[in-house]
Write a protein that binds this DNA or RNA. Sequence first.
DNA 1: ACTGCGGCCCGAAACGTTTCGACGAATTAT
DNA 2: ATAATTCGTCGAAACGTTTCGGGCCGCAGT
Lengths: 347, 347
Amino acid sequence: MANIRDVARKAGVSIATVSATLNDRGPVSEETRRRVWDAVKAVGYSPNAVARSLRLGKSRLIGVVLGDITNPFCTTLVRVAEEAALTADYSIIVCNSDDDPERELRLIDQLRAQHVAGILLTASGRGPDYTRRLERRDLPPLVTIDQRVEGLDRDFVGVDNRAAARMLTEYLIRLGHRRIAMISGRKGLWTADERIAGFRETMQASGIAVESALCIQAAYRSDMAEKAAVEILTGTAPPTAIIGGNNVIALGALQAILALGFRCPDDISVAGIDDVPWSGLVRPRVTTAAQPIADITALAMEWLLARIADPRKESPPARSRVFQPYLIAGDSCRAVIAHSPPAPAVA
Amino acid sequence: MANIRDVARKAGVSIATVSATLNDRGPVSEETRRRVWDAVKAVGYSPNAVARSLRLGKSRLIGVVLGDITNPFCTTLVRVAEEAALTADYSIIVCNSDDDPERELRLIDQLRAQHVAGILLTASGRGPDYTRRLERRDLPPLVTIDQRVEGLDRDFVGVDNRAAARMLTEYLIRLGHRRIAMISGRKGLWTADERIAGFRETMQASGIAVESALCIQAAYRSDMAEKAAVEILTGTAPPTAIIGGNNVIALGALQAILALGFRCPDDISVAGIDDVPWSGLVRPRVTTAAQPIADITALAMEWLLARIADPRKESPPARSRVFQPYLIAGDSCRAVIAHSPPAPAVA
DNA sequence: ACTGCGGCCCGAAACGTTTCGACGAATTAT
DNA sequence: ATAATTCGTCGAAACGTTTCGGGCCGCAGT
């Protein structure tokens, strides 16, 4: 593969001059410039990014570490991130952490070894040890997205998860529901915990006791959710509504409901956080507290790129921006009169 | 960040010895080995992947170039590919080509500049010029997946797209449909063309003429599909069934049908290629010709990794493996008697 | 006419690895 | 006892860039 040296030889100049020409650095005469570019075309030169990275101590790669890339939330995140990266002339490396902090930290180490310019992270861990490992001074600029790490001195962009849960819980309570179940992600996952907290908060504020059997933290996975939902629904006192801590969970729960022969929303109402893919076609259309993923990702990338561009040491202190979720009412929730299951639908 | 030199100094040996120790190359005494490892821990050393890549002329990165990463087909592809890569100690770089050959070739160039070890590609182009640019000798091992390039001397793993289209077309014909429309991806996209061809073939074999107004090549995008479907449905002689060249298209068409106030399958039947995400919840459940994505991807990665591992020049000649699609019958297709729309459902 | 100064270009060092050839010491063969 | 061999280790070159300091030339200022 053609070298910068080959170009220099062909053009009859030094490699320093070639480099200067290619990077528009230093004074190079018009004549020389032309000769260099001709030589570049002639030998089919394209710069070796690896060598450049080594010299510069920086690559033009951005690492994106996600919990689960098959989750629609993550795919649009990736899409937007890649778009933003590309316009700034970066490429992105995508990694799956499976929401496992150990695996996640390993991946981050790998990315650091690759000398990525920055990292976008949905953090899956917590605790002082974990936090310390994300604050290492030898890590590239890193902004956390979606999953916050309390006490971590890094940028964060995400959504008000308690508000999202509160929104749905209030919505259901207003519809007359009292026995409301919630299935969320793994304990220790920030969004999962927050959403559960928002749920409990709201229930308590309304003077409704939360039964522990109806408040489950499993995982952001449809099979887990389905299992949990089946357990709940076949229990002694099934709920009249289920909140999914996640789009995947909501759909899993819905699947369980239908599989058990219940009807939704007639027998059981369902709501979820995060918008659902093809929401227009899933029947019933599930009511969700959606997040502005594109905005969130765009801002996170903006901050990340700014930190990357800034030569000074992490100049601005860690910022954080919390977007508000918004309710998308579907027809998966129905009003409940007293304790009798069937009731008229509600807009 | 700690150097190999730092380790050497700390351990009181040369850097050559450190390197030999870390890579289990050459004879190193047990004593020295221990000292080196201790030093590694002590200074917190982790090797610089960039420098290694430069020296070796190879990185441990695999590039994955996809048409549209938000397409569920692609996400599971990425998932499986990442899994396979990781167990072989590689990471993957994901790029979106938007099914644009120019952009795709640019991305491939970037990946080459990054010295990726190999490339997994859903090829979006065709023609001698395009083919030549994918056959450049200075490209890393490359296997094409899903989208084939006719005449390209590279490995390919995918599915029999004509068979997929044939399968659905025959299915609909057997249900009594005669006026069948098909909406597929962009002209020039291999899968799109093949699927259209399979459709035409089958129609002709059954002695049914294909109206050009009912055979549209738009793009693998839901909005495009929806528009095309609306056009077809509001035309002078709407079809009784629509085949989507893609899961996304099928869902887009379905959305259009419902939006126009038609019912599916009562008024219009729908079928699509590729499995649909959350297929269990989309109502009606759309009948699809699905592909074994995981198997396809796993094989493609196996071949790619084999080529990467093989030091000889592209040793085995280009192989190609075509999987068979399989029908998943939903309830989005209904039998048609003569030309009267409503008819009894069919299992 | 000599100094000073810009403009243009170049040589060489450095980034952090891997690897080849060589070298001293210890062991074995002659 | 000496030569040959092996073992453990090391120095140095190389991968392809970027960049710093300096050199050469011609032109303006004194």
